[in-house]
Write a protein that binds this DNA or RNA. Structure first.
Lengths: 297, 297
DNA sequence: AGAGGTTACGGGCAGCGTAAGGATC
DNA sequence: GATCCTTACGCTGCCCGTAACCTCT
């Protein structure tokens, strides 16, 4: 009969994701391999576990029953990996989704820290805007994400990481009249910031609309580096967290505008799907918290 | 890192039995195979799990920790086998220890029943006297035993099965004077019964000693068939449960002696080591109970 | 010398990935 | 036709059992 724990793990993910193809992605292998394992599991148990639908695979009653056991099994395996194995022994690939702001602050330090704690662990870093990362996390195409959160999904675990103020930033030599700068002045100047779907953009938009002002010309851009370059070139005023332009501030190339109004802080969150046994992601979030707290000073 | 559930199962049994060799017997494989798997598990986890002593293997602290997880894992696997797998899918070998009395009553029916319920299951039947079976069970060299019980060990699970009266049986033509036969008469006649270490022998001995009578000549024999033959040949009176000589009774070859005193019933028990997840043995005991209850009529 | 565990070696088989084959919308 | 799963096939690599070796009593 011979039940293989890998077969169970594969079955667990197929059940969880409702798709052979996605399970294959999750487990870093090919569809046929998944197909084989599930088929073999069904033969070994003598039971049909999945109803193959054209779009999704649904569980049979025996399948649901097995899913409970499989989940516990996966949990135990994860516990063993975290509890009794030495960190050096942990390998595999963890898919990390990162907001670009993080890239410009502490991502490098984080990666360094991970590699020293888990030398044999590979990080698959994906940089994207928070809403995309959020989707990918919900669909379990990512194992952990550092983004503007939290994600309000019951299947998601959130941990607060850090909070960065937003500010209006301009080329140091740009003349904007007397400070503090008024909203009216801003509305008459091109603004450079994050893409439309993101929180900073929405916060800015809300601020202007509430003041009854027309929307200024806005250059939204998904590349923070480009935003910084454009600001340096004097193309407009950018709305970004100052923490990512420290060098330019100290060199006097950019300056933070004093204003009479405030933009909400950007709150960054570590988010991860609620996997059984609390996968490696837990440990990674712990490392991220460490890195963030050390970076504060 | 790649933890294999079979590695865990192997480790579990090595820890449980304190010996690579015994684990190999338990799992129907060879010592080197066990050695390989444990070694690989230690490499994969990067942790030393066992202190190889010259006589026994003892657990390290990490080993104890892993043993908990491994036990739960083995339990889950057993649950899956019993809960979601179809009975036909169950295979493997179960080692059954049987008292010879059972052989002469319902063992055949039991084996038949097992093979119809679990067609791919192999029974390894070992016939011996109850004390030997008891030892083998405690040392986990047997998975389940049907014997004179119960076994008073905390690690053992007992289920009452059936109870057979003991009686004095003689060749039908043997002249023993008027009945009921007195103890004195018996003490003057050779007695044929189970070996010295067994319960019936002890019960008989106690009966005679309490009556202040000398021990008669006793032919103790571990083969019930031989006891029956000897009784048929008129060599002496046997102390056996009449249930095993029904044919001879109906044919009038043997007869049960009426006596004024009583011997205690033989109480047969199913006993099995307290394995995690309640192995197949549970189901087998259930079948045995069925067979016994049907056999009563 | 004997028991228990490890190491060495060869054969068999299982599992993977590539690629082609249905089925369903 | 697109998507998703299954089947076919060749190859690599693992795992098992036999046998020799090591170590401790």
């Amino acid at each position: 009969m011979n039940i293989d724990s890998r077969d169970l793990e594969v079955f667990y993910w197929v059940a969880q994701l409702g798709s052979f193809r996605r399970a294959a992605e999750q487990l870093n292998t090919t569809q046929p391999a998944i197909s084989h394992r599930v088929a073999r599991l069904e033969v070994n148990l003598g039971v049909k576990l999945l109803n193959r639908g054209p779009r999704v695979a649904t569980l049979t009653s025996k399948g649901r029953e097995l899913h409970n056991h499989a989940e516990r099994m996966v949990g135990i395996m994860a516990e063993i990996a975290q509890t009794v194995a030495v960190p050096t022994a942990l390998d595999g690939v963890v898919r990390v989704g990162v907001s670009e702001t993080i890239v410009h602050t502490w991502l490098a330090r984080f990666i360094e820290r991970v590699h020293s704690s888990f030398p044999n662990l590979t990080l698959d870093v994906e940089v994207d805007v928070s809403p995309h990362l959020c989707d990918a996390l919900v669909e379990k195409r990512l194992d952990v994400g550092f983004l503007l959160g939290p994600i309000s999904e019951p299947s998601m675990i959130n941990h607060d990481l850090c909070r960065y103020p937003l500010a209006f930033v301009a080329n140091a030599s740009m003349d904007l009249g007397s400070e503090p700068v008024s909203l009216l002045t801003l509305a008459g100047t091109p603004i450079i910031t994050y893409p439309k779907t993101t929180r900073p953009y929405l916060a800015l938009r809300q601020l202007l609309i509430r003041a009854g002002l027309p929307m200024p010309r806005i250059y939204s851009n998904s590349s923070l580096s480009t935003i910084v370059s454009m600001t340096l070139d004097g193309i407009g005023i950018s709305v970004i967290p100052p923490v990512i332009i420290r060098p330019q501030l100290t060199r006097g190339e950019l300056r933070i505008l004093k204003t009479e109004f405030e933009l909400p802080d950007l709150v960054f969150t570590a988010a991860m799907p609620n996997a059984p046994g609390g996968s490696l992601a837990d440990s990674l979030v712990g490392l991220a918290k460490q890195v963030v707290s050390e970076h504060k000073d």
